[in-house]
Amino acid sequence: MPEGRRPADSVLLRGAAAVFGVLGLLGSALADGQLLATGGVSTIEGSAGGGVVPWAVLAGYGTSDEWGGSAFASTLNTGDYRLDVAGGALTFNNRLELSLARQSLRLSTLGPALGLGAIRLEQDVVGAKLRLYGDLIYGDWPQLALGVQHKRHRDFAIPSAVGARSSSDTELYLSATRLFLAGAGGYNLLVNGGIRYTRANQAGLLGFGGDQGGSRRAQAELSAAVLLNRHWAVGADYRQQPDLLGFAKAEDWRDLFVAWFPNRRVSGVLAYVDLGDVATLKNQRGWYFSVVANW
């Protein structure tokens, strides 16, 4: 869809990005107190976690007396769809994470089929995550966090045409994450379990609610990862999806990933993602790449 159709939105987003940048620099005695890899990577919605599942950890490597943050760019290509995401997050005292992401979904197959060319659908996600209790590694309790994501679709014509009820929504999630030292045959094991209260179709890229239901429901979000050493992790995500649009069944998402943490400044993710059937197109699978910078 044409850029700049909603100039107010762009100004807002650019302003927010500028504020983020300035705050990030202010906090920029590098926040390095956490162990390598324990900040996770950036999810496609901007919050820290695995590839598609937010974890209870907060972005960056700051401890309770530091500010930190991250910026990322990710891309997923299934052939029929291509999702590009860019965004960032700021974390204050390992207590509160604020995040921003802009997602752009290219309909490589459906667009031309509808006579619209290779169109894109865009969505903005503004998130906040509060660490409630516990710790990823130390003490008796896993790290628990409560998150909220406000999503605003910028190109609602197509979601609306297939039955979505709303172009924006706010959803809550609760997640628990723990790193078990020597937990998997001597290797460190990270386990995350979460619940999201949502009515988003394909995470909101196809709008919110639909002809099959308008209310939010609890959906499971799980991840497990084994740290091969300080620098490499392999794991899997699973994310349940509500199925609210009658025109096509939505299936749960899952992925297998390899993440590389050469140092605290950058990390990279390579994943193989299976979104199931998406908007009538079968078996949407493909590679996902992501690069994250931390400070």
Binding site: P142, R178, V191, N192, G193, L222
Partner: peptide, 9 residues
């Protein structure tokens, strides 16, 4: 996955 995560948590 559910089993593993709940047990481990």
């Amino acid at each position: 996955l559910v089993l593993a995560s709940s047990l481990l948590l």
